[in-house]
Design a binder for these strands. Structure first.
Lengths: 117, 117
DNA sequence: CAAATATATGTCCATATCGGCATATGTCAA
DNA sequence: TTGACATATGCCGATATGGACATATATTTG
């Protein structure tokens, strides 16, 4: 084994800048492959391959429409990432010691009930 | 060019499962390399290399302590990821049309002021 | 059916990993 | 200084990846 397959989870799929750009372009509306390729200024084959990865991890879904295939965003697959990151939120507020104090004060306030400020 | 260097940004650094495990272990307290290696059940060299990547993208910092080096979490580097993901939050609630309606209702409520439930 | 258009795939290349192992470097203790 | 312990690196092998190019597949049109 060399490295986890990129195709295995959202974390890897999204580690690729181009794929992030694709997802961004799909916010709100569906788009055909060529349109994405043009927007990203990369070749169509490359675009198709990135889309394939995104499809395999379930971040996008395809819909046939005549001779084109419309790709749409399926952001549900990003929830795990969201939850994972959220798990670190308290730590990037650098001094969460101060945060704890703040919480304690709030609790005391609730009990004692003081004036406004 | 083959692929973006893993060492370039948090997205890539965090795409590696082992590195995510390391970050999780560093929540709250610092730890020396060997302790991490044991906890993860991977070799010390491997652990050092993952730590190096994490260090290079700024997700951990080191502190010398006698003959050991204590690694600590520096979650600030995860904020960009958090913001990126948040940008998709409205889309994974599948029909955010309904969400919009909900928001509108809340606003109306604020004006009209209704009963509890 | 043939031509045009839209996509998906296969192949080749260069490179970046991940992992293991041996070893260099650095620190502390006797 | 020597030895024990902690950690960082270098090198090798196997593999996955991104990109380019050619081409297969599918759909619409004439």
């Amino acid at each position: 084994m060399a490295r986890a397959a990129t195709t295995s989870d959202a974390f890897n799929a999204v580690a690729e800048p181009q794929r992030r750009r694709i997802l961004a372009l799909l916010k709100g509306r569906e788009r055909p492959v060529n349109e994405l390729a043009r927007a990203l200024r990369i070749t169509q084959p490359r675009t198709s391959k990135h889309l394939r990865v995104l499809r395999e991890v379930g971040l996008v879904r395809v819909r046939e429409s005549g001779q084109q295939r419309l790709y749409g965003l399926d952001a549900r697959g990003l929830q795990p990432m969201h939850e994972w990151v959220i798990g670190f939120e308290q730590y990037w507020n650098e001094n969460f010691d101060r945060l704890n104090e703040y919480v304690k004060k709030l609790q005391q306030k609730e009990h004692a009930d003081g004036k406004r400020s």
